[in-house]
């Protein structure tokens, strides 16, 4: 600034002097520039930037929506998968339960049938045994009667006794056949 003042004091051009023509020209010319740019340039630039901004925001929003939809679909898929797993587990459980039930039923039925058969066999055995005992009793009675009658007809010695017993056993054996 000192140099400027020295220059001014020495009679050179005053750097800080005010001249109306440059000031007025700058004022008017900038006014023209401002009006021209405000009309032809800035609306176009602002619209271009706004369009791009809207496009970018739209794309980001679309991407976020797509991501949300994909996330929802994934959640739905995972839920379906979990349901399917649960359902299959239930089905397996149910099948096992059914199989177990059927097996139990079969087992119970078999056991019952077996018990019935055993009972029936026991009953048959009992019947047979009773019949055999009755038969044996009848045979014994008949043999006793027969032996008694024979005893009554003669004296029985040891050989006779032995023979009688043998005969009785043979008769018993033959009667069983």
């Amino acid at each position: 600034m000192n140099a400027l003042l020295i220059l001014a004091s020495e009679g050179g051009a005053n750097p800080v002097s005010f001249e109306i023509l440059p000031a007025a020209t700058a004022f008017v010319v900038f006014g023209v520039v401002f009006i021209a740019l405000a009309y032809f340039v800035w609306p176009t630039v602002a619209k271009g930037l706004d369009d791009r901004n809207a496009k970018i925001v739209g794309e980001i929003k679309g991407a976020e929506e797509a991501r949300a939809a994909a996330k929802a679909a994934q959640a739905e898929f995972e839920r379906s998968l979990a349901n399917a797993r649960e359902e299959s587990a239930n089905m397996i459980k149910q099948a096992r339960a059914d199989a177990q039930r059927i097996a139990d039923e079969l087992k119970a039925k078999n056991e019952q049938e077996l018990a019935e058969r055993v009972a029936r066999a026991n009953a048959d055995i009992e019947v047979a045994r009773k019949a055999a005992v009755a038969d044996l009793q009848a045979q014994s009675a008949m043999l006793a009667t027969e032996i008694a009658s024979k005893i009554l007809r003669r004296q029985v010695n040891d050989q006779d006794n032995q023979r009688l017993v043998q005969e009785s056993l043979q008769e018993l054996a033959s009667s069983r056949r």
Binding site: V16, F18, E19, P22, A23, T25, A26, F27, F30, F34
Partner: peptide, 15 residues
């Protein structure tokens, strides 16, 4: 340099 003229700058600053 137009902006090295104080007068020009005053015209702009008036805006």
């Amino acid at each position: 340099t137009a902006t090295a003229s104080l007068s020009v700058n005053i015209g702009l600053a008036f805006w």
